[in-house]
Design a protein around this nucleic acid. Sequence first.
DNA 1: CTAAATGTTAAGCC
DNA 2: GGGCTTAACATTTA
Length: 247
Amino acid sequence: MPEGPSLIIAREAIKEFKGKKVVAASGNAKIDKDILAGQKLIDIRTWGKQLFLCFKTSTVRIHFLMFGSYSVDEQKRKKQSIRLRLDFSNERRLFFYTCSVLSLPAHIDDLYDWEADVLSDKWKPVKARRKLKTIPEDLVCDALLNQDIFSGVGNIIKNEVLYRIRLHPETKLVNIPSKKMSELIKEARQYSFDFLKWKKEFTLKKHWLAYNQKLCKRCNLLFKKKYCGKTKRKTCYCTNCQVLYKE
DNA sequence: CTAAATGTTAAGCC
DNA sequence: GGGCTTAACATTTA
């Protein structure tokens, strides 16, 4: 569920509820659910890995974390994992399971940098580059997971982007040549859209070239697997064709 | 069967 | 306070 492209799919899957009035709200989320009853779901937005249900007086933020999911009309998981259930008229309903649910102000425009969302029309590569400059000592594997810079990028996208551009995950940002930095920023967005397309076709896994793979298809050599950087997330990379730039 | 995982936050420790 | 580690969340997949 969790990487940015999956949230685009989620928004699409529930878009028919936009403009509909919530009849009742329940679930074990620790927000005031009562205020939602009687309110119209004005808009459904995403920012990276987050989904926003916008109402007149507040916004409900859903983050699926690692194991979260949702379903439309039918309950798909046990009651205990229902964080939020929204009932609409005509037996229509939305379920959100095992996710982080937060109540935010109605106006969230100033809460996030919408130009940091790699899947948004507002994405600004120049801005990403500027932000990367401010953390020169960070490793690229950590930088890609930084949601303030690459909102929506997760561990799969990270692995695939680094493999595509032949960049070693432990390269320090300061040592990345300018042209390679451009590739990095460009591919973070491009692979996210490829991910989205393949996920919709249910062919995502078969397109993985690095994530959870054994062999590098370019070199026919074994991938190295390591929990890299301060984020310590699993990284599969080819030490032969992914270049580690130093100094 | 067991372990790890598409992620983040909060708490606890030094 | 900073920075690091751990737990928590609960299901699916290898």
